[in-house]
Every structure is written in structure tokens, then in C-alpha cells.
């Protein structure tokens, strides 16, 4: 039995070593293909010529102080930030992921950078990193883009209940919007904040092609008694925002209500 354990451990150690050595430490080529740009997002694909090459990327628009840095300076800064975060992480525990596992990307991947400034020049900088020495390899790659014009609107929404029927009236009936509700418990337990929940939901619906079918225009009504998931006496948040051209395009409007089968009750903040 002991012999088997020794052989197995040796095999595992060998596997570990051989795997580590597979991560590329010599210079590779990277291609960055921008697939879509909206007012606050850029979608792009990274295609390395070696799937074991490790890399970091950063995207920003001209509002960011990083925008004025050269690609070399920006690469050094993002690597330095990652190293600081990694050391902080290591300090909290005696078991930790490798730097490459925790902070570097590998292989062909698609990315979306969100929260950019509308109608602004932007750039993506990618740097190959040696996973063992944690140093930059070769010259960073830079591609430029320009975000589209801001479609942010000063749009407001009025919501009310007649029994369990919810009615939403937008201030501008010609513009599209999206709304959703979630229980107070789910929003706080699963997502920490209502903003995080709403943005994640919208991003998921965007990613999987639902948004077009879910957006409304003009007055919208929905009978909440159709939702078997609602629990009487439980507090829910209603969140509404304008949504146009692939973007949340207004401030979020929040309402709190308590569901009862005989009629929902709006609550004050």
C-alpha cells in the first residue's frame, strides 16, 4: 500500500511539474478583435497563437487617467496592481492559487468591458506575462476604439397597483424601458445590492438575446397574481430603467411593495 502511495504521489508531482512547464514563457503573438462597441461597452476577442500563453488586459476610455499612459506603462501598472492584490490574498491564507491561476488569462477568450464613457476614444492594452517570473514578455498589444454617443435620458417612471395589477407609466412613451422585481431577501442574500442584481439580470438577458422581447414602450400593465412565486406578506423591490441601443439609458427607479393576493401595497422608502 505504501509503495502505491509513493508511486501515486510521484506521479502527481510529475503531473504538476509537467503542467507548470506547459505554461508558455517565450514571446507569443496576440490578436485582439473588437466585435461590438456601444456607449459604455466594448466586446472583444483575444486570440493568442499559443493556448498556453498567459496574459492580462485593460480597457479604458479617455476619462480614465490610465488612458494617457503608454501601452508599456499601462502594462507595468496593471501587472503591479495584480501582484499587490495577489500578495494581499496570500497574506490572508496559507493555501492559495498560483499567480497565473488567480490573475492571468489563457487561451482564446471573449471579453466585455463595461462601464466605459460614452462618445469617447478608448483603448485595449494586452500584455503577455511570464507566469513564473511574473514579468512582462515582449511588447504589449494595443487596439483603439470609440464608444458611441450617450443615449442616457432623463426618463422617469410612475408605478401603481390596482389590486394585484401593476401599471407602469413612463415619462416618455416613445422610448423603450425594462422593469423587473425581486424579493428583498433574494436581492440582498444573492447579490448584496439591488444595483448588482439589476445590472446582472440585464447583462444576462443581453448576453442570451432576450432584451428585445422584454423591453416595453408606453404604459405597461402586469397582473402579479400570475406569478406563483410571490409570497404573501413579503417585501419586493420593483426596478425600472430606460433601455435603448443595448444600454441601460436612465437612472434606475425603485419602488418597494408588499404582495398580498387581495392587492399589493406600495411602501414608502
Amino acid at each position: 500500500m505504501k509503495k502505491t502511495v509513493v508511486i501515486l504521489l510521484a506521479l502527481l508531482a510529475f503531473t504538476g511539474c509537467s503542467k507548470k512547464s506547459r505554461l508558455e514563457t517565450s514571446e507569443c503573438n496576440f490578436q485582439i478583435n473588437i466585435t461590438q462597441v456601444s456607449a459604455t461597452k466594448v466586446y472583444f476577442e483575444v486570440v493568442p497563437d499559443n493556448v498556453y500563453a498567459c496574459y492580462l488586459w485593460w480597457a479604458c476610455t479617455s476619462d480614465s487617467k490610465e488612458y494617457d499612459l503608454s501601452k508599456e506603462e499601462l502594462a507595468r501598472q496593471m501587472l503591479s496592481d495584480s501582484k499587490i492584490s495577489y500578495e494581499a490574498m496570500k497574506g490572508e491564507s496559507d493555501v492559495y492559487a498560483s499567480f497565473a491561476d488567480a490573475f492571468l488569462f489563457r487561451g482564446k477568450r471573449t471579453f466585455t468591458c463595461k462601464s466605459l464613457m460614452p462618445d469617447a476614444p478608448g483603448k485595449i492594452v494586452l500584455a503577455q506575462v511570464n507566469p513564473n517570473t511574473r514579468e512582462i514578455i515582449g511588447e504589449p498589444v494595443e487596439v483603439r476604439f470609440t464608444t458611441t454617443e450617450d443615449n442616457y435620458r432623463d426618463m422617469t417612471f410612475r408605478a401603481s397597483f390596482q389590486g394585484t395589477v401593476l401599471t407602469i407609466i413612463p415619462s416618455d412613451p416613445s422610448r423603450t424601458y425594462f422593469w423587473d422585481y425581486i424579493s428583498e431577501r433574494q436581492a440582498e442574500d444573492d447579490f448584496a445590492t439591488l444595483y448588482l442584481y439589476y445590472y446582472n439580470l440585464v447583462y444576462m438577458y443581453e448576453d442570451y438575446g432576450f432584451m428585445a422581447g422584454l423591453c416595453k414602450k408606453g404604459t405597461d400593465s402586469f397582473d402579479l397574481s400570475q406569478d406563483a412565486n410571490l409570497v404573501p406578506g413579503v417585501k419586493y423591490y420593483l426596478v425600472i430603467s430606460a433601455y435603448e441601443e443595448g444600454e441601460i439609458s436612465s437612472d434606475l427607479t425603485f419602488y418597494n411593495f408588499v404582495y398580498y393576493p387581495e392587492g399589493c401595497v406600495m411602501e414608502e422608502d
Binding site: Y86, M89, A97, D101, A102
Partner: peptide, 12 residues
């Protein structure tokens, strides 16, 4: 998972 848990104490 790796993208979401970036910086967490995870061995992938």
C-alpha cells in the same frame, strides 16, 4: 467561476 472569483483563495 474564475472570472467572478478573481482574487479569491482558489486553486484552479
Amino acid at each position: 467561476a474564475k472570472a467572478w472569483f478573481k482574487g479569491c483563495d482558489i486553486h484552479y
